[in-house]
Amino acid sequence: MKNLKVKTQNLVKLLDALKDASNLLAPQTDKYGDTYFQQVVDASQVVLKHFKPLMPAVREVLFGQLEDMITFKDTASGTKIKPVKAAKDTILFGLPNCDLDGILYNDEFFAKREFADFYYVNARKKLTIITLACLTPPNENCFCASMGHGPFAEKGFDLQLTDMGDGFFLVNIGSKKGQKIVDDNSSLFEAAGEADLSKWKELKQQAEESTTKKDVNKKKALDNMGRTPLKEQMIIEISDRCISCGACNYTCPTCTCFNVIDHKKDKAGTRKRVLDSCILGGYFRMAGGHNPKEAKEDRTRNRYFCKLLWDKEKLGDSGCVGCGRCLDACPVKVDIKDVIKQLSN
């Protein structure tokens, strides 16, 4: 990994240049106090402090809440269909590592298994990722290091920036795309020395410690989960509180389920996909009415098995990246950490 550094004011200049070359989405705070990914118009407005958006970065361009897939039109010689055009070049700036790992999960899920997902793959090819390492947990619900995911990234990014606190950001280059950005704007960067690197390592270690929850033992929880059934009392308690809003799915960086719907007016229309939620009863119900998971408890249990254990069996690691968003967005404060803790016992 080649390392450089960039002055804060030069970073703003870099963003200014990037916004002209491509769609640049970066965290900005609006006048109501909310921070989220927005199209950059004025690079000086970009938030340069690490942050965790409520909606994971994968939802921005790769796999959204509502996406057009196919347009269709009835003609005299039958229905003519056309795939919706591929996404445009986009740079996502300022995402935390949990979001990067979420995207890497989605890469595995959508792009690398049998039947690659056309829409995901095309959007992914056009995406450049510049992450901002989390020096401290963006909020109290973060526990990424306990799940083995961060808060600094080691791979998968195009560029990773770390605020060194002295007016500089350390720059890790993770890919050819990242290298090209650096090469195209080489006057803005300078070399990083040994001292920078050792300070960076120190920051990394501190950050990892601050996002490690001692009582969350991933390995033990997963081992136990494979052997014994989930504790029923815990599942019932969660189900009794759950108000079926779907937020734990909608905000999860590794939830990939979708529904497909057709919208048609007169002779033409669009086939779309809608982000789905396995907490909803209709998710499993078949035409004709039979539902293999009629009880909310069954769906709650399914969600934790899917997220924690089955993902490991399918893709090599548990789907939970420890971002804590399912708790951030949960109206009744169901905490996946509690589930993992109980499972570790």
């Binding site: 109501y32 909606m55 809440q65 108000i243 939620s277 951030d328």
Partner: peptide
């Protein structure tokens, strides 16, 4: 409209919505 994100600063929503709120855009189009 391609998505909905609850406001985190709003005194009622606080980053949360119910299932209807999360799906309050599909009928628009």
């Amino acid at each position: 409209i391609i998505g909905i994100t609850p406001s985190q600063s709003h005194p009622v929503s606080q980053g949360q919505l119910c299932v209807k709120g999360w799906n309050a855009s599909e009928f628009v189009h």
